Simulated assay, not measured.
Amino acid sequence: MKVIFLIDSLEGYGAEKSIVQIALHMEQVTPVFIHLYKGDKLKSSLELRGIQVYSLELVSEFRFKEAINSIIPIINKEKPEIIHSTLFRADLVARKLKQSFPHIILVGSFVSNSYGVNRYKQLPFISRIKLFSTQLRDRMTASKVDFFVCNSKAIKKSNIRALGISGNKVKVIYRGRRFEDYLPSTKAFNLLKKEFNLEEHQVFLNVSRLHKGKGQLDLLNAFKVLNAQNPNTVLFIAGEGSFRMELEDLINSLSLENNVFLLGYREDIPELLAISDYFVFTSYFEGLPGALIEAIISKTPSIVSDIPENRECFLENGALFYKSGNILELSKKMEEALIINNWQEKVNASYKYAEENFDIAKVSLQYENFYKEIISGSK
């Protein structure tokens, strides 16, 4: 059984990281990857496992005809039973390809609450119009997709409403992680502790793309309140993105240069989690957040925005929740985190829940079983 995974890029964030990890653990499926645009941090990990990767590296994001002309020979060569697309531009390309390959099962992905109320709320008017235009384009072509895989129940509910599709076409399979990857290297841990001189500090960590919707402006403002009362606190933000300049400007204007560190894209997330006392996740909308799952696996106490996508990662009282966008409440929850005395109970329960739901081997097997079902026609 061969599946072509069509994706925008292999740059290394959220959806890209998750689908690559799933493919690496497949035993009954032969995965093949095609990525449309530049960004291939994850390519080597696939090729080391003998997985074929086609890098189109298209320059223009919307030259779909060029993409299709490049992909058709690959499909003719690889002869997959399934094409599984992930992220919006790859989805649109895959839906156009369906016209040329109607016999190949097309699976789409729901990886984010793209058209939820929370996303619309945090956008200016013109951006809302653009997002609604994207939603209409998505909705008009979604009927060409045979099935969808969705990474959370909350996302399924939101997207079937936004795109007007039947819930029977959508299979919920959580994101997964390899738990042993989050056992930090002792050497790397000690080097980080020494590098940042953290012996007398309480460390808060955020791992996310630098993007307005990730709520990092709220985080900086809340941290300013916390740090004024607790000067031994520091905040690390690991990730890269288009919002870096805005964050740098706010850090400077709040005089937090000695307490907040933008770390950029990092490969040592397990070590960063190990040196951190708390994980803080401030998104306005998400998919099922892989970074949050990684914090749970690392048993790092978490303060998170109270959105359905984040709630789904925990049992009822597994974290401290605050209303997204409420800076004062966020600062209070960060303050509460410093004095709460039952964190061990919370993180142990959350870890057990993660073992049952987010183990990568179990997740990959669910994908393989789903593919077998739709090929056999039993789905």
Results as ranks from 00 to 15, higher is better:
52 Q>S: 13
52 Q>Y: 10
53 V>Q: 09
54 Y>P: 02
54 Y>M: 04
55 S>K: 12
55 S>E: 14
55 S>R: 14
56 L>P: 09
57 E>Q: 10
57 E>H: 13
58 L>Q: 09
58 L>M: 15
58 L>H: 09
58 L>S: 08
59 V>Q: 15
59 V>D: 15
60 S>V: 00
60 S>W: 12
60 S>T: 09
61 E>H: 14
61 E>P: 10
61 E>T: 11
61 E>R: 15
61 E>A: 10
62 F>L: 13
62 F>V: 12
63 R>S: 14
64 F>V: 00
64 F>L: 10
64 F>E: 09
64 F>D: 11
65 K>N: 12
65 K>L: 15
66 E>M: 11
66 E>Q: 13
66 E>P: 06
69 N>D: 15
69 N>I: 10
70 S>P: 00
70 S>G: 13
70 S>M: 13
71 I>W: 00
71 I>M: 10
72 I>T: 15
72 I>L: 11
72 I>F: 03
73 P>D: 04
73 P>C: 10
73 P>E: 13
74 I>Q: 05
74 I>W: 07
75 I>A: 03
76 N>K: 15
76 N>M: 09
77 K>N: 14
77 K>S: 14
78 E>T: 06
78 E>R: 02
78 E>Q: 12
78 E>K: 01
78 E>G: 04
79 K>C: 09
79 K>V: 04
79 K>M: 11
79 K>E: 13
80 P>K: 06
80 P>N: 05
80 P>S: 06
80 P>R: 06
80 P>L: 08
81 E>A: 11
82 I>P: 01
82 I>R: 01
83 I>A: 02
83 I>F: 03
84 H>L: 06
84 H>F: 05
84 H>N: 07
85 S>W: 00
86 T>Q: 12
86 T>H: 15
87 L>I: 12
87 L>N: 05
87 L>D: 00
89 R>C: 01
89 R>F: 09
89 R>L: 14
90 A>K: 00
90 A>M: 03
90 A>Y: 00
90 A>V: 03
91 D>T: 09
91 D>Q: 11
91 D>E: 14
92 L>Q: 14
92 L>P: 02
93 V>I: 10
93 V>Q: 06
93 V>N: 01
93 V>A: 00
93 V>K: 02
94 A>W: 00
95 R>M: 08
96 K>D: 07
96 K>M: 13
97 L>A: 06
97 L>F: 03
97 L>G: 00
98 K>Y: 08
98 K>R: 12
98 K>F: 06
98 K>V: 03
99 Q>C: 09
99 Q>R: 15
99 Q>L: 11
99 Q>K: 15
101 F>V: 03
101 F>S: 09
101 F>G: 05
101 F>P: 06
101 F>K: 05
102 P>S: 06
102 P>G: 05
102 P>C: 07
103 H>A: 14
103 H>P: 04
103 H>T: 12
104 I>K: 05
105 I>C: 02
105 I>W: 02
106 L>K: 00
106 L>A: 04
107 V>F: 02
107 V>N: 07
